[in-house]
Amino acid sequence: MAGFLVRRLVGRGVLVVLAGSLAYLLAAGVLDPRAEFEGRAPRPPEAVVEARLSALNLSDRVPLASRYRIWARGVLHGDFGRTQEGEPVNAELWRRLGVSLRLSVPGSVIGSVLGVLLGAYAAVRRGQGADRVITAGSYLLLAVPVFVLAALLQMAAATANDAMGVRVFAWVGESTPGEPGAFRGLVDQARHLVLPTATIALAQFALYCRYQRGLMLDVLHADFVRTARARGLRRRRALLRHGLRTALIPMITYFSYASGLLVLSGVFTEKIFGRHGLGEWLVDSITRGDVNAVAAIECAAACAVLPAGLVSDVLSGLLDPRLRAGAAA
């Protein structure tokens, strides 16, 4: 088992290194940081711009290969360089990673759990009212892009605030500036989390709900569920203990695939709700032409895929005895 994990780790590691390098080369080759500096008012002299770009390893007059070498050497020492403003990328990366995860983890967990439960429930009630409502809801949600969904939620919240006369919902930034007291501050932060979390949760919910419904329909008439009922289990119990438990196994792959993308999943949500996470940073950096920041975000995102894959392997092994035996043999 250990050997198998190590081999898998190495294989994926190579993939991540390649992906990171590719991202740097793409970013450095396509983006134009010089334009950003030259566009400043007052326009700095040519020599100053060049000196600044060289110091940041951004000058397009240096060959791409040598810029890549400098960057890669830095990355090997755990240093992603500096942003255009001269701030270290690392510190900003960690800070923003925290912001992104605080937003996307609760949203994804709520969305996927709800999706799995309601998807399974809809499958069991196939063709009945509950199934129709859930299926129609997930269909509609899937057709609504995140940026539209967020706008709709904002509109609904604004209407609710007006109707109640109190600002129950707040959504700009992570907190209201100048909110006094530790406890009030915490409540305020939670208040700001509601809408963006709901946005992420709803989007995830629709996806998982449809997957799980399909998987559950497949086991609904499985022979082993019939066997369980023939032994005297009621339909509900046979479906929960034998059907759902088995239908969950393929979901692991979806979970891990989605959690690998967790880091960047919040691009729209962050942008719209003004939360300064990785996704927002990525969009801004691309617009600004900030090569080092873009490359660092890409590396973080690619790295996130690595543990996600491993977790998926381990979880599948835990949930599915057939794989466990395969790994141990």
């Binding site: 082993f224 019939r226 023939a230 032994r231 289990l233 034998h242 438990r245 005895p321």
Partner: peptide
């Protein structure tokens, strides 16, 4: 459900057991 498996049992053509539970657990459950 109170009759099935208690007073009236069935053996199917396909010996389909739930793949994720041990054989002993499934008999014990019965």
């Amino acid at each position: 459900s109170r009759v099935r498996g208690k007073d009236l049992a069935m053996v199917f053509q396909e010996p389909a057991l739930t793949p994720v539970h041990t054989v002993g657990d499934q008999i014990a459950e019965t």
